[in-house]
């Protein structure tokens, strides 16, 4: 395979330098002026508690203007009775590019319309890339992502796992659109 020398791509808005820019020091001074101006204005607004400051003190303070479709923290939806909608099918865990979902499935033969459920459902926020593929993959609408970001800054990566009960309860959402038929003749193993 012959190696082609790299040719830099030219863009339509390629900057060009005149004698003023070549003189260097004036334009650099102007640039510093812009940065400094924004910094001082922001600082002043923040110190005096005015609206419009660009900095927030995360995590104590949070921005209120996340887009409604922002992919933040996951939540597990609930059935009408509050139990998880999830059937522990592992589609989300399989598709996850960060492989950060781990599920332990359990079996409940008495719950004929929902015999397989997650006994444990863990997401590792130190590795999640917030791609939303888990939400796309779920056949049960059991996992969604809320706009709010997970409140998880910390010093220990191993403590960034969030488990089933928190995912179910931090912002409970019901999926009542799906009726659960009760199987005729179904019941506990005989």
């Amino acid at each position: 395979m012959s190696k082609q020398p790299h040719v830099r791509r030219r863009y339509w808005n390629e900057p060009s330098m005149g004698w003023w820019e070549r003189a260097y020091v004036f334009e650099v001074g102007r640039g510093l002026g812009i940065t400094g101006g924004v910094f001082l204005r922001n600082m002043w607004k923040w110190i005096t508690g005015r609206k419009g400051a660009l900095t927030t003190y995360y995590p104590e303070e949070k921005r209120a203007d996340y887009a409604p479709a922002n992919r933040g923290k996951h939540l597990l939806t609930q059935r009408p009775d509050g139990r998880p909608q999830c059937v522990a099918c592992n589609m989300c865990a399989t598709v996850c590019p960060a492989q950060c979902i781990e599920i332990d499935a359990a079996f409940d033969p008495d719950d004929a319309s929902h015999p397989k459920y997650p006994a444990r459902f863990e997401i590792d926020y130190s590795r999640c890339v917030f791609c939303g593929l888990c939400v796309e993959a779920c056949p049960e609408d059991a996992i969604r992502m809320a706009p709010e970001t997970p409140d998880l800054p910390g010093f220990d990566r191993d403590r960034m796992w969030v488990g089933r009960d928190e995912l179910l309860s931090w912002n409970p959402q019901r999926d009542v659109a799906k009726p659960y038929p009760v199987a005729r003749d179904a019941g506990p193993p005989r």
């Binding site: 033969p109 199987a183 005729r184 003749d185 179904a186 193993p189 005989r190």
Partner: peptide, 14 residues
């Protein structure tokens, strides 16, 4: 048609 979901064939097989 719905049918028996879990029939206990033996202690090893459903």
């Amino acid at each position: 048609v719905r049918s028996t979901k879990y029939y206990n064939l033996s202690s090893r097989i459903l």
